[in-house]
């Protein structure tokens, strides 16, 4: 008697599909073969979101206008338009001033840190929140409406510290890899140690492994960039030591909490080529 129920399942097709998938996955994980394709799709979906939002707003406005009583519409049109115009003007001026103040403050901070005027300020377009909270990949996209040429691996500054470095540009967006991304490595130093801190894949956390004997720091000690990677300026405060735990009898892992929370920032600064270190 047959032990299995008969099914029409040709294993050859499944085996081909299986090996093809494994090949794609291996190619993507080992050498990021499909990273440009994913970047274009991300940028396109951002565009679609922006466009669909404005289309929906227009349609809902049209429908609400049609529903209004014609007589009341004519009667109130003038007054409503005036009120709207005043309110809108007021709102835009307020928003514009707020934004200008923020940009000026941020530019001042950048100038005081880098002593340079060659800094481009960009507004955030999107942050990959799903991955930021759960997973290893921590990225943000910045708006680049003027299509300023930004090259790969340039340090990105926000608030009053570094937050990451540029990865790629797609259409009008700049992809930035954050310091907490597991693929990111940042050379740092303190009073007693130098190390290359890798992102932990958790918000605002980086860590590095050190020899227990040489380590004399304590929790709360300030950590700064060492500038040894040739990308980030040295002596910029990056965060503080928040946890220290042993891995082996001779080795410890030092966890550093970063100073700047990317979720609190709207504007990001990138130093242009002629101000490179």
């Amino acid at each position: 008697m047959a032990r299995y129920t008969p099914t029409n399942t040709p294993i050859r097709n499944y085996a081909i599909a299986f090996f093809l998938s494994v090949f794609f996955l291996y190619a993507d994980i080992s050498s990021q073969t499909f990273a440009p394709l994913r970047g274009i799709i991300n940028a396109s979906s951002l565009y679609v979101q922006v466009i669909s939002k404005s289309v929906v707003e227009n349609i809902s406005f049209t429908f609400s206008s049609l529903k209004q009583n014609k007589y009341l519409l004519q009667e109130n049109k003038k007054l409503r338009e005036q009120t709207l115009q005043i309110g809108l003007k007021d709102f835009i001026e307020k928003k514009d001033n707020e934004e200008k103040t923020q940009v000026i403050d941020f530019t001042d901070t950048l100038f005081s840190v880098f002593k340079s005027n060659g800094i481009n300020v960009f507004k955030i377009a999107s942050i990959d929140l799903k991955n930021y909270f759960c997973c290893s990949s921590h990225k943000i996209f910045l708006h680049n409406p003027n299509k300023i040429k930004i090259e790969k691996n340039f340090p990105v500054f926000a608030g009053n510290s570094f937050v990451g470095q540029t990865k790629k540009t797609y259409m009008n967006f700049i992809e930035v890899i954050l310091l907490s991304d597991v693929e990111h490595v940042l050379p740092i130093k303190s009073d007693f140690f130098y190390c290359d801190a890798g992102g932990r894949g958790k918000p605002m956390l980086i860590s590095c492994k050190l020899n227990d004997k040489d380590f004399k720091n304590q929790i709360g000690d300030i950590v700064m960039t060492s500038g040894l990677g040739g990308i980030f300026l040295k002596d910029i405060e990056i965060g503080f030591i928040s946890e220290i735990f042993p891995i082996t009898p001779d080795e410890i892992e030092v966890v550093i909490t970063l100073k700047t929370n990317p979720l609190d920032e709207n504007f990001y600064g990138i130093i242009s080529r002629n101000n490179e270190i």
Binding site: T7, T9, F18, S21, F24, R38
Partner: peptide
């Protein structure tokens, strides 16, 4: 393409799961 961080991951799991379900669907 739309949701994953690596191309091939969902392909692999969809194919493998589909095969297992096909094999035991009547059970």
């Amino acid at each position: 393409l739309f949701f994953s961080n690596a191309i091939g991951f969902n392909m692999l799991f969809f194919v493998a799961t589909s095969y297992v379900i096909h094999l035991y669907v009547f059970r």
